[in-house]
Design a protein around this nucleic acid. Structure first.
Lengths: 330, 330
DNA sequence: CACCATGATGTTTACGCAAACATCGGCCAC
DNA sequence: GTGGCCGATGTTTGCGTAAACATCATGGTG
């Protein structure tokens, strides 16, 4: 910076003013400084800047795994939105979802140059981890019901589930089975709860819950069970991957989709339109979730930072070929 | 820091020594300082540290999209490996793969607090973008053949392709069709080149190349073409997603897999084992690629930094149910 | 014509840390 | 006993920037 100042024949303070787009600099002087900057290949030192300003313009993202579409798409949207707001995104992967690991991530965070944190994770780990955050670091959480303690942004799991169940009931199915996600996942729990509630509302009895772990493989195993049940004519899978495994199991056992069994998924991953048959599913707007996360976290960083609360992003039913009225006999 | 020093009854320099695990501090003193630190909730300011030390301990990752499994898995491995080495990872998404956008990402990078950069991208955009990097920022590139200009880490595309083609020829197929990736992708180009070379080596004539864009949907469209060709008994798809679409097209047109047509993929995405039928494919070790990227970039940051060059990570053939000998008549 | 407001620029200072150097007490060798 | 050496700790300094304050010319006003 001093070199630039010397070359342009001004003081370093004027260079600083130009570099920050500060008003009150003569246009002529400004041009000289800019010329000197580019001649010397000057770029501001972000460490010094951060030190002086007391902020890093960086958001940390803690996420358990990048193996689910949802997390990845949310992350991507967060990174894009943050970039638009002039913020960088630092990634903090948590290898194993144990309380210790989460606490470890947060403590690494303490030495990290971030102004705020977005957590994409099952939140009961968060609760257990007696997290002690550096002051002034704001937190927004995805995939959680911790709205009382944190600001939460999430897909409207319950609304989407109701739509799915209602769609199948409208087609004439007597009831709807549920291939749920793993125990301990809030998203899975809310989808299962909403499924029971929606059936109860319609006066139907919920069949027993079948659980997977989000993977296609687990969907296949669960599907083998379900295929054996003659009375099962409609299944709501808690995500598209498990629906994929389910389709394979049903196919292997000779139960046709959608003629014998209707299947509906959740997520609308890009591949869903290429399943056999193309999957009817609920589209999640991860991009919007990510965008809202960034907005929320930036809002909280302002002095008049808002209260905690939960923001829900609606889902959209995507009709394809995996659902139909039940077989005549059903 | 001054507060800690005062509370512990030592100088700030001693606090600094403790906080950096410097030797030559009396154990008793050390304990006092640690006690004072935790009492005051002290955490070192990374901006000041970076300013003083001249390094950020952060690696930037520029990636075009997170919508492909490979990029995501590589990114995750990079983040994990970097964390183990005490480095943070900052994400720089490039929204649109245009030269301008890439240049924009690099210029944002100039103000960013990173010591090194890993680029996960088709590299001809990189070449065109006359990238001007800040000095001392090292670059490692994935998915590229720019070994002359950069340090490159990548999957052994050619080796994997040879394995795939040979597997199908060994089963007795006369030739192997190729469902390739989009023009302009280096990975796609190398797989296509290696496919031609492997066939030529075996004295077979390569059928015309059919192109997709990596998506399942494009695989489906291409699959409809291929299904119409009686003589096509074996297809090597350049990735698993396209193989998924291909399977659907073949199924719709009544061509059984693997009885009538053998299909082999590339990537071994987790869902591949749940396709109909489970997909034989080439496993890419993205975790290893990410790990090697971090190692390479750290090595380059050392004073005796090594020369450019290309490191290849081998693939592994995963046998499932989508390949078989050609039909008797074929 | 003296005064003050205004705009443009320069000077000083501090952000928090750690390298470099300074100090100080104790211990050993001769 | 004296010199030298070593380990433990304190003091000074500067990293690059921007806020706060100081300075200076200019032009308008009473």
């Amino acid at each position: 910076m001093a070199d630039v100042a010397r070359l342009a024949g001004v003081s370093s303070q004027t260079v600083s003013r130009v570099s920050n787009g500060y008003a009150g600099v003569n246009e002529e002087t400004r041009q000289q400084v800019l010329a000197a900057m580019s001649e010397l290949g000057y770029r501001p030192n972000s460490a010094a800047r951060a030190l002086k300003r007391g902020e890093f313009r960086t958001i940390g993202v803690i996420t358990f795994t990048l193996s689910t579409t949802g997390n990845v798409r949310t992350l991507e949207a967060i990174a894009t939105s943050a970039a638009e707001e002039g913020y960088a995104v630092t990634l903090l992967p948590v290898a194993v979802p144990t309380t210790d690991e989460v606490r470890g991530a947060f403590s690494r965070l303490e030495e990290l140059a971030v102004d705020a944190v977005i957590v994409i994770m099952e939140v009961h780990l968060l609760d257990a981890a007696t997290v002690k955050l550096p002051p002034h670091v704001q937190v927004v959480v995805v995939d959680s019901d911790a709205g009382d303690h944190y600001t939460v942004v999430d897909t409207d799991q319950a609304g989407g589930t109701r739509t799915a169940v209602q769609h199948l009931l409208d087609l004439g199915h007597r009831t709807v089975w549920h291939l749920g996600g793993p125990e301990g996942s809030f998203a899975a729990q809310r989808r299962a709860d909403a499924w029971r509630a929606a059936l109860a509302e319609a006066g139907r009895t919920p069949p027993p819950l079948v659980r997977g772990d989000w993977s296609a493989e687990s969907g296949y195993r669960a599907g083998l069970e379900l295929a054996a049940r003659e009375e099962c004519t409609a299944v709501f899978a808690a995500n598209d991957q498990m629906a994929l495994g389910l389709l394979r199991a049903l196919h292997e056992r000779g139960r046709r989709v959608p003629e014998d069994v209707s299947v509906i998924g959740f997520d609308d991953i890009p591949e869903a339109s290429s399943f056999l048959p193309p999957l009817t599913t609920l589209h999640q707007d991860f991009a919007e979730v990510g965008r809202l996360c960034v907005q929320a976290v930036l809002r909280k960083m302002r002095p008049d930072g808002s209260e905690h609360g939960t923001t829900l992003v609606p889902t959209r039913l995507v009709l394809r070929d995996s659902t139909a009225p039940p077989p005549a006999g059903g």
